[in-house]
Nucleic acid binder design. Structure first.
Lengths: 144, 144
DNA sequence: CTATTTGCAAATAATTTGCAGCTGG
DNA sequence: CCAGCTGCAAATTATTTGCAAATAG
């Protein structure tokens, strides 16, 4: 828990109890959490935590770069605790969003884009959105 | 306007006046429109058109594949009239979202992913999210 | 005709805001 | 201390729904 505290402080945020647990929940979360998700996850152990605070805290963490906003289509703002370049696989039948990390792929894409010299744009990050379909026969049954 | 009518009908949708103008507005739009955007754009010429109808119509068009939902971070559901694979450039200073089409890039990415054989996933589409920074000195002034 | 679709208003969901009281440094 | 945070409730924004009236085919 100590280095989370340091991270917050180095960004100029007070290391409050709420921020520590919210940040930790986001980091340990295997999915890409929404405010609601974090709130539900923490409610049991921290009943006095309010949903409004979760919203504000996630926004602050994003503002200072400790979290990233995720682009989604599902009507909820989601966050991503990985702040380095990585990719996402959206499974069209199960609705899952999985991380996909591949340093080689990052290189391939960035090299390609660098060669192209798009307008007067300096590229900061790239993230691939892969839409796929799980061919697992067990899962197939669940297709709605 | 004729082939729009045909497209709707071929998908089993009645070619109503509202659908024709909404679909056309989405197609001619250089940005990636939200329901609100389409509504505002059409309000003048079609004052009886209701926002609820715009929501329903965009959802229907997406359902039959004439539009795609766009992943965003801005809290509004946006649509994209391009239904083939293409990429998006998000400009971090101006907030613009630009299309980026490059058949060669699609190939490079798909070939790479095909080689990897990710789990038991069949890849349906890929879309690259490029975050960049416009180096235009004129624009730099506007950075907030 | 009649199954769909529209317009409107009311309902719901997601997020933000205002502000009094609490708390970390 | 006291500036920055939190909790709460009310406000706002985005989207969906229900239903009677309109309309495409």
């Amino acid at each position: 828990m100590l280095h989370l505290r340091d991270q917050l402080q180095s960004k100029g945020l007070k290391a409050t109890h709420q921020r520590l647990v919210i940040y930790q929940a986001a980091l340990n979360c295997e999915v890409h959490p929404s405010a609601e998700w974090v709130y539900e996850a923490l409610k049991q152990d921290h009943p006095s935590l309010s949903l409004g605070t979760v919203y504000k805290t996630l926004a602050s963490l994003e503002e200072v770069g400790l979290l990233r906003k995720m682009e989604t289509t599902d009507g909820q703002l989601r966050y991503d605790a990985k702040t380095h370049d990585h990719h996402h696989i959206f499974c069209a039948n199960t609705g899952e969003i999985m991380d996909f990390e591949d340093e080689e792929l990052n290189e391939v894409i960035k090299t390609f884009l660098a060669k192209k010299h798009i307008n007067n744009l300096s590229i900061r990050s790239v993230s691939l959105h892969i839409t796929g379909w799980k061919e697992d026969p067990l899962k197939q049954i669940e297709v709605k």
